[in-house]
Each structure stands twice: as structure tokens, then as C-alpha cells.
Amino acid sequence: MELRSLFLKANNELEYSGNRIRSRKVTCKKCQKDVSVAKIRKNNFVCPNCGHYFTVRARRRILMLTDKRSFVELNREYESKNILGFPEYDSKLQAAKEKSREFEGVICGEATIGGHRSCIFAMDGNFMMGSMGAVVGEKITSLFEYATEKSLPVVGITVSGGARMQEGMISLMQMSKVSAAVKRHSNKGNLYIALLTNPTTGGVDASFAMLGDITLAEPDARIGFAGPRVIEKTLNRALPKGFQKAESVLECGFLDAIVPRDQQKSYLEKLLRMHNC
């Protein structure tokens, strides 16, 4: 990461913590009303007018779900390389680092949640749409291996457009790599809770997002394998209302529960407690 990117302000105006912005307002995409940034932040990044869920970057997501000052990050320094020499990938990586203020699209580590020791990973939608390349696969695999070794549960927050095509088959095979690590973790009797957020699609949906012992989702999150536009184009007709939204995915039987943002931490605490973690 270039030094200057550490000093850049985040693109997401909700995240910027300078004083001047406290009085600022943003327009909610859903209800089109202007809402003060301070109010949105206080409300877990949910619009106080219409309940729209604003995106939350990975680091804040972890802060929201773990006990204060308990998070210790693992493998933060791993950085992607343009292994295949894919056109424009270098500049995209650079832009993603600046936009997300992270080295890669997932943050992994250990923390306590309501006093329960747990491993946690959170993907970052600001980093190339949370796509999974070799580093994302490696970090999550390492985390599961670490959790297996220490007999710790894993809480995973997913947001992803799928495999990162700029890394070709190397990124596709991360699906296999992570899934195998999840299996080993499970074989030792450890708990894995997946929390799916908007959107969780493609290769991430078709691997570790769907492999939790308990699978949770945020309201209204898009969850699915194929992109809606691709399906629409293939079938040449409009998609049913609410298609691939968490509420309908739950109805189809692929989620255990939909948990609103303000209840997520206590919900996780309860689950960890009931598993004696």
C-alpha cells in the first residue's frame, strides 16, 4: 500500500470521522430523504426514516459485533499480486486499497463476543466488491486452520460478488480451499456461524457462505449464486418480486434466521453461549 493512501479519506462519506462531517447529511438511496450522518451512525447504519441498510465496511462491522478493544487482527499484511498479469488489475487493486483503506477484501482475527472467545472474519464490499482472490481465500483458510487448532468458533460476515476473475482459476479454486478448511474445522466439533450481508453471491455463496452450522442474514440482503441480470437475460423474462432477497431465501429453506442489525451482537452472544464457547 502506498503511504499516501493511509491519509486519504474514505470514499464512503458515512465512514469519515472528521468533525466537520458530523453535521453533514446524506441522501438515503431508498427513501430519498436527507438524513444526518450522526443519526445514521447512531442507528447502526440503518436509515432512521425507512430502515434502509447502509453498507458497513469490514472493520466497523467487526467493531459492531465484538467486545470493545478485544479484536486482534491476523495476517493483515497479506497483499494481492497480479499473478497472471491481467490487464488493469494493478490499478484496480490500488484503487481498491485507497477506497477501502485496507490491504485486501477481508479482515480476519480473534476477539471476544459477549466474553466468548471467537475467531471472526468480515469481508469488505469496498474492496473490488468483496471479490475472492488468492489472498482472501488464504486469509479465511488460515483463520479456519487457526480456529481448528485452538478449538475456537468462527463467525464469518460475508459480502461478495464472487470469485475475482482477474486471478483466473486461482481464485475459483479458493472456493475448494476454503471449503476444505471449513470441513476440517467442523470435523473437530467446532461451531461456524455465517452472517450473510448484501450482496453475497457467486463463488462465495457457492462455498463458505453456505457452509455454516448456523446461517444468518441481514434483512433485504441479496443472496444467490447467479447474478439477477444474467438470469433475466437467460430466461428473457422479469424475475419474481423479492427474488434472491434474504426473506425469500429463508422461505426456500436456506437460512436459519434473518437478524436485524441492532440485534446481531446479542444474537451471536446467545448462540456462542448455547454452544459453550
Binding site: S179, D205, A206, S207, A209, L211, F225, L235, L239, P240
Partner: peptide, 26 residues
């Protein structure tokens, strides 16, 4: 590729693929 369609999605295309990777791994 795996079939792209409403039915396939509603019956859990992602989960089906994930489960194969998971179970085949051991």
C-alpha cells in the same frame, strides 16, 4: 456452467455446489 435460473436459485444452486466441495474434500 451451473444452470442460471429462478428454479435453480430457489432450490439452492450455491448450497449444492458448496456442499459438493465440502463433502468431496474428505
Amino acid at each position: 456452467g451451473a444452470f442460471c435460473g429462478v428454479d435453480a436459485e430457489e432450490r439452492g444452486q450455491g448450497r449444492a455446489i458448496a456442499e459438493n466441495l465440502y463433502e468431496m474434500s474428505d
